[in-house]
């Protein structure tokens, strides 16, 4: 239970880091990276999330139980995304009768 006292400076640094990353997100939005637009945005978001979780939420110093619960949250999100994608990624595989194929292009290739 007892957590080490974190110096205020750490929190200020993390805060500044978060602000910096927010500015970066905005900046990157003005540059066209092609397919990497999403990758860049998600990578920045992910680092911000890590900062919040590890420092502000204090998970750096938390017990194993708290960490398991945290990981479970992400794992469940992964389940949601993975099984949903199992639909989107395979919808166009469905062999449709010839008469159907001319109509519309597959929505989710």
């Amino acid at each position: 239970m007892s957590q080490p006292i974190v110096p205020q400076k750490t929190y200020v640094m993390v805060f500044l880091g978060l602000i910096g990353l927010t500015i970066l997100t905005t900046g990157v939005a003005f540059i066209d990276l092609g397919p990497f637009n999403t990758v860049a945005a998600l990578a920045i978001a992910f680092s911000k999330m890590l900062l919040v979780v590890l420092f502000f939420m204090g998970v750096r110093h938390s017990s194993g139980l708290v960490r398991i619960i945290l990981v479970a949250g992400f794992f469940w999100l992964a389940l949601l995304i993975a099984f949903t994608m199992s639909d989107y990624r395979t919808r166009s595989w469905t062999p449709a009768p010839d008469s159907w194929s001319s109509s519309a292009p597959p929505t989710h290739p």
Binding site: F83, S86, D87, Y88, R89, T90, R91, W93, T94
Partner: peptide, 14 residues
Amino acid sequence: WGHHMFVTGQSVYA
């Protein structure tokens, strides 16, 4: 959960 969506246009493989 996808068993609620068998006839909705969900992929047959899912």
